[in-house]
Design a protein around this nucleic acid. Structure first.
Lengths: 151, 151
DNA sequence: ATTGTTGCAAAGTGTTTGCACAAAC
DNA sequence: GTTTGTGCAAACACTTTGCAACAAT
């Protein structure tokens, strides 16, 4: 098991986010810290209301308004990305430098699963070059039935 | 210029849709006909409200409620697909057998442009096979700046 | 002391629904 | 005449905003 090297550069996304926010002139605040701490532990996208519920359960709650405001700030700094996976509700997930992934949505139960594929990324890069726009990002959403709902 | 062959099979999407609706036991109605007629002439996705506005301009208007109801029926029959391109609003476009396309959204002006790419489709097919879900559809959205907004 | 942050409640928007009337069959 | 389609208005759900109290610097 590799020990974390005691470098001055933060490894956790939460630390990275805190640093970027501080550099950008934001102060520390309860709601912001709570949202960041929660997002840091997720491996996939959450909606604002899911965030609210989970924070309440941890007795670390924040108002819905603050949650939306924090998410907007984080998106503006490129620290989280906002996705619309099809039900008219926005979902948010951390942007970590490394692997970036896409989403598989079960049309029956609504469950969302991340997946990644290099060949797909390559194809997207290739087509992006071909187009007149200056492409800065992309989303791929696959729809279908998950193993459970197929039965 | 190839003349259309006078076959018994309808060529226009609107005719195809009308036939499918009739087979499914739906009656004919003003709002439904208006929405179908409008969608048939589009090459890319429209929101419910854009549909409402365009129908009003043509003096062929339908209530917003009916528009949503018609779109829901059409989606249920697989005649239109519903997309969420990122602004929290749903867009709808005809599903025509042949070429299927994806969307390029300008982050500045919000303009939406369709594009198609075979290699991308192949990559999606390939990754779909690899996953545990039974994939029935997919969306790809590219974000960036269009030629106009880049200036 | 200043200025950013939070919570509440109200407002905003896109979408859905209940119901009565009109239209299709 | 029965059943479906439509329009209106009210209800909904997610998101945003105004404002006063609070907390960080």
């Amino acid at each position: 098991v590799p020990r974390s090297t005691a470098s001055s550069r933060p490894e956790r996304w939460a630390d990275h986010a805190a640093q970027r926010l501080s550099e950008a002139g934001y102060r520390r605040g309860g709601a912001r810290g709570a949202v960041i701490g929660l997002l840091d532990k997720q491996e996939c996208a959450l909606s604002a209301i899911e965030i609210e519920d989970r924070l309440r359960r941890r007795r670390n709650q924040a108002s819905r308004a603050s949650i939306y405001r924090v998410l907007e700030e984080l998106e503006g700094l490129g620290l989280v990305s906002r996705l619309e996976l099809g039900a008219g509700i926005a979902r948010f997930e951390t942007v970590r430098g490394e692997a970036h992934h896409h989403h598989l949505v079960c049309d029956d139960c609504g469950d969302i699963v991340p997946f990644a594929d290099d060949e797909l990324e390559q194809a997207i890069r290739r087509v992006s070059r071909r187009l007149p726009h200056e492409i800065s990002g992309h989303d791929v959403t696959l729809h279908g039935l998950c193993a459970g709902c197929r039965a």
